[in-house]
Amino acid sequence: MEIIDLQDWQAFCHGDNSAMERLYDRHSPALLSFCLYLCGDRTKSEDIVQDSFMSLMAQKEGHKITRSVRSWLFVTARNLVYNVSRRISHQSLDSLSEDHLATNSNPDISLIIDRIISSLPADEKELLLLREHQGFSVSDIAEMLNLSKENVRIRLYRIRKRIQEKERTLK
């Protein structure tokens, strides 16, 4: 996918606007899901996805993106989510977790996952989503979040351990 992304990106930089539409169609659903689980507000998440693509288009001058377009989009979206949540001081990321329940087809699974995800602090939530929902590798995540690979491995272990302990208490 990364090669196709870079090809489309290069095409967009050379004036092919349909290449940006292809990038949007390919990545916006995953990006929206990520934002939605991170901040819980559908309208804000859609705005953030749009803004992320607008920022991507603004990188056209100077062909600033040389590596993964997908990673770039997720890092930008993640930063925008934190900017928005900082502005909404009375609502924490953890308390914003209702919209995605209504959009999932299986309410039982949604409830379980909602409990699991919403119980995590924001930094652990994003790490879990990037790894388990979006399928980014440990190396990718380390680069995206500016962490060492070892740190990512340890954090993932702690999250999994904590969730296992929570499952025990829920049972």
Binding site: Y24, A30, L32, S33, V49, N104, I113, L128, H133
Partner: peptide
Amino acid sequence: IRSLPFQSMAQPL
């Protein structure tokens, strides 16, 4: 977590 569906944008770019 992987069973969670991806969401669709309500609007095009």
